[in-house]
């Protein structure tokens, strides 16, 4: 029964993290964006600096009518948000937070598992784009697919570089074999991974698939209420997952002073810093055009990641 209890506890912990961390990122985004633009951001909900704004938003979303357009493919339209959201929940469970098994569940091929499952989420956007029976949604869906295809590859290659360095695909294994100089050694790979991840999440400056000035809100144009909220939740859960993964793969996860006792804090701290950078980039840069987006992936990120793989391989063989 002890085992069952452990499992239940982990499940609850993962679910709570899945629901709370994206909200934290979202609220931080509200405030950071506001201050970077010389504004205050939400100030009323919850009293102190509008901390409950996203909770209020959630309540509002739940009360809104769920409109399914008459021309839409009803079933697929309604299913799409779930398909977009669930992969991130699955990924969250294998990300190690601290040493000594402080992880939802260690999976041997963890890195590969993460990359494979994250790729499934795009199906949600594609389904939404097609099923909405809306030109703008369809265009958004197409752009999403093209973007995923362009950026999944550099992500895979950069992740492969880390796997080479560590000699394992297990995420806790990768963190355990980390040394501080890896960050420099894998710097190019880390940058490529983070950038490609941003693009996969369709975060600015890579938000062409949801470019509001061109195609309203891309694949999510027709969504209202709770289903729309789930798409948003998926985006922020994606930020958490991406930052967590970058931390684990390139920044040494729980490594830091007193890692034995407060290792989990280091992981969370590094993840938070990365999430801040995600927001910061959103405020600072304009959106890339669609062809620039494609060109950037194929002519910049992929060559860099190939160079990184060569570098990793040579260094590894020489030092071993």
């Amino acid at each position: 029964m002890n085992d069952t209890l452990h499992v239940v506890l982990r499940l609850v912990a993962v679910l709570v993290a899945f629901l709370v961390l994206p909200l934290l990122v979202g609220q931080t985004e509200h405030k950071v964006m506001a201050h970077m633009q010389g504004r205050l951001g939400p100030m009323y909900a919850g009293g102190f600096h509008g901390w409950a704004q996203l909770v209020a938003d959630g309540v509002k979303f739940a009360q809104k009518e769920d409109v399914v357009p008459a021309d839409a493919d009803r079933r697929i339209f309604q299913l799409a948000p779930a398909v977009a959201l669930l992969p991130y929940l699955l990924v969250l469970i294998v990300i190690p937070v601290g040493p000594h098994g402080f992880v939802g569940e260690a999976v041997d091929a963890g890195l590969f598992f993460v990359l494979a499952v994250m790729g499934v989420g795009v199906l949600g956007s594609l389904m939404a784009g097609w099923a909405s029976a809306n030109k703008f949604s369809l265009l958004g869906g197409l752009r999403t697919a093209a973007q995923l295809m362009a950026y999944e590859l550099p992500m895979l290659l950069a992740a492969a570089s880390v796997a080479m360095a560590a000699g394992t695909l297990s995420l806790p294994g990768i963190v355990e074999s980390y040394h501080w100089w890896w960050t420099l050694w894998q710097l190019m790979g880390g940058l490529v991974f983070f950038t490609a991840g941003l693009a996969e999440l369709q975060r600015p400056p890579f938000d062409m698939p949801v470019a509001d000035s061109e195609i309203i809100f891309g694949a999510y144009t027709e969504y209202t209420g709770l289903r729309f909220a789930l798409f948003l939740l998926a985006e922020y859960a994606g930020i958490v997952v991406l930052c967590g993964l970058t931390t684990v793969l390139f920044l040494g996860g729980w490594h830091g002073p007193w890692a034995g006792s407060v290792g989990w804090l280091w992981t969370l701290l590094k993840t938070a810093v990365l999430a801040f950078i995600v927001i910061w980039l959103r405020v600072s840069y304009p959106r890339l055009r669609e062809d620039q987006l494609m060109k950037f992936a194929w002519t910049v990120l992929i060559p860099i990641s190939l160079v990184q793989i060569a570098l990793t391989g040579v260094v590894k063989v020489v030092t071993s």
């Binding site: 950071v32 506001a34 201050h35 633009q37 010389g38 600072s284």
Partner: peptide
């Protein structure tokens, strides 16, 4: 953007 963030915001409440 970072510099703007550290400054006082100009929002009229």
């Amino acid at each position: 953007t970072l510099r703007t963030m550290t400054r006082k915001s100009v929002t009229a409440r």
